[in-house]
Design a protein around this nucleic acid. Structure first.
Lengths: 109, 109
DNA sequence: TTGACATATTCCCATATCGGAATATATATT
DNA sequence: AATATATATTCCGATATGGGAATATGTCAA
């Protein structure tokens, strides 16, 4: 077997930095492909290919208006990622607490 | 260019489902490689290789005790992922609000 | 219909992957 | 030293990637 496809789930899709950039740009308002190309300074085919991956996992939605395609981030699709990371939150809090305690021990041993 | 290495950052490292499984197991307490093999039913070399990737991006810490290696999740390393997803939170909230509003419009038009 | 514009797809290539099998390394025990 | 146990590494093969270049598709306008 090989590495899972980028289109297999949200985790794989957002592993690519440019796709994260695109998602950040498209979350506050929809943009045409040309806008994204201009804003990120990427090649147009490259942007189209990234958008295809994002669409495959429903991270973006599309709307056609004449010749242009307007994409927007579907923020809801990012929730599974957020939820997964949240399950670790209590532990990094504990770690901070532990680090703090150790620091205090060093100050007043 | 090709796909970024799994060891290039946390996003790429956690794209693999088995590695997420390992992180979940190791977050509450440290475990030996053998424990992980038993708990997840994977081959030992496979586990060692996944652990190597996780170590490369500091998602796990290791401690040797005799013949055994004890691994534990470094929850702190998951924070960048959490922070990135959090930047989308307001938008999925807005989406929920919009959905709710539309539902109310349908009920009382 | 022809041309112009916006976007999508295809083809190529260098590269990295994951699993499996085999093997190597490190530590403890006798 | 020889053996056993725990873990790590290497080699292999099938597969998917992302960028670049070229090309195809789709839509509007004259």
């Amino acid at each position: 077997m090989s590495r899972a496809a980028t289109t297999s789930d949200v985790f794989n899709a957002v592993a690519e930095p440019r796709r994260r950039d695109i998602l950040s740009i498209l979350v506050s308002q929809e943009r045409s492909v040309g806008d994204i190309v201009t804003m990120l300074g990427l090649e147009q085919p490259s942007v189209s290919k990234h958008l295809r991956v994002l669409r495959a996992v429903d991270l973006v939605r599309v709307r056609r208006d004449g010749k242009q395609m307007f994409y927007q981030t579907n923020a809801e699709a990012i929730r599974p990622l957020h939820d997964w990371t949240s399950s670790f939150k209590q532990y990094w809090r504990h770690q901070l607490k532990r680090i703090k305690e150790r620091a205090e021990e060093r100050e007043a041993p």
